[in-house]
Design a protein around this nucleic acid. Sequence first.
DNA 1: GGGCCGCTTGCGGTATTCCACAATAGCGTC
DNA 2: GACGCTATTGTGGAATACCGCAAGCGGCCC
Lengths: 201, 201
Amino acid sequence: MSQASAHIIDDDEAIRDALEWQFRTRGVPCTLWPSSEAFLQAWQPNWRGCIVLDIRLEGISGLACFDILRGRHCNLPVIFITGHGDVPMAVGALKKGAFDFIEKPFNDNELVELVQRAMAHDAERQRAAADRGTVESRLATLTAREREVMELILEGKYNKVIADELAISMRTVEAHRSRVFDKMQVRSAVELAQMLATLRG
Amino acid sequence: MSQASAHIIDDDEAIRDALEWQFRTRGVPCTLWPSSEAFLQAWQPNWRGCIVLDIRLEGISGLACFDILRGRHCNLPVIFITGHGDVPMAVGALKKGAFDFIEKPFNDNELVELVQRAMAHDAERQRAAADRGTVESRLATLTAREREVMELILEGKYNKVIADELAISMRTVEAHRSRVFDKMQVRSAVELAQMLATLRG
DNA sequence: GGGCCGCTTGCGGTATTCCACAATAGCGTC
DNA sequence: GACGCTATTGTGGAATACCGCAAGCGGCCC
C-alpha cells in the first residue's frame, strides 16, 4: 500500500513551492506536479491521499483532469482552487463528486485543514472498502443454499422454522448454518449480522 | 401527520401561478407563498414535502429564510432558484445543507423532477426518523445494567462469558437478557442487532 | 466408471438459551 | 413501615444450537 500524499497540481512553480512549504510545515506529505498531463501519466490506482488543483490549468484543465480520473475509477478526494469568477464551474465539479473547492485568496490554515479532512476521508474510505472486500470475498464462497439459509438466520429465525420454510430437515439447516459460520469466520448469528450491517452502512 | 406539499415562495405572482400550474399538471401538491415572512409565520414543525424559493426575495431573502428555518430545526429539503450571477450564494447555501439549486432559465421538467426527488427524500427521512424514534424510546426504558448486558450480547458473546466479564452469575445475565428482549420487543439477539443497525445506518 | 462436490439426513452428546416461578436485599418514596 | 423497583440468584425443565462423525444421492467432470 502506498504512502498517502496530497498531490498538488499547478503550472505556476512559485505557487507549487509555496503550497509545498505550507503543507510540509504542517506535517502534510505532498507531491508536486507541474501539469495535469504529468500527474495523469504517473497516476496509479493504489495511490492514497487527495488531489489539489487549480480549476484553470494550461493544457488539460482541472475539470478535464477530474473527468479523466473519474473515468479511471479514481476515488481520491479532489479539491479545486478557483478564482471568484469560476465558482459556477467549481459547483459543476462538486455535483459530479469533487470533494470541495476553495476560492482565492484563501487563508493558509483553511486549505491545510481542508486537505487534512480530505486525506482522513480517503483513509476511512479505503479502510471501509478493504473491509467490504473481505466480507464480499467470504460471501462469494457460499453456495446458493447456504445463502438462503443465511438470509433466514439474519431474520432471527430458529433452525426449526427455517427447516419448515425451506422444506428440509432441521439437521440440514444445522449443517448449512455451521458451514456458513465457518466460511464467514464468525461464531454466532449476531456477529454475522453485525458484519453484514457494515457492508450495508 | 400533515399532507406533503411543495411550498413555493416567490414575490412575483405570475411566477407563482406558472409554477403552480406546472406542478399541478404533474400531480405535485403545492402551496404558494408571496414572501418569506408569510411562509415563516405559517410554518409548523410537522410539515412535510419541500421548499422551493428564489434566492433573491424582497424583504427576508431566500438565504435568510433558510437560515431561520435551520435555526428552527426545520429539515424540509430546500431548493433555491437562482440567476446565473447568484451561483456563489447558492453554493454557500448548499454547503449549509440546502438540498439543491437550479439556475434560471430552466426546463420545466427539470424543476418538477428535482422537487419530486426532494419530496421523496423528505418522505424517506421522516420514515427513518420515526423508526429511530421508536427504537430510541424503547432503549430509553432500559436500566443501566440492562444496557451493559445488551452491549455484550450485541458483541455476540455467550451469557456465560458476559457473566464472567460483569462478575455476576449466568442466571442474572439470563434475567437481564430476557427483560432487554421484552422491552425492545424482539425475540432474538439477531433481531436486536438488525434493529440497532438501522439506528446507526 | 470413478472421483468430487453439494445437498441432504441421521446419530449421540454437550452447551446454551428460553421459560416460568420464586426469593432476598438495597434504595427511594410515600 | 409499606410499597415499588432494580439487581441478583436459584430451581426445574424444555427448546434450541453446536460439535463431530457418518453416509446416501444426484449431477458434473475427467
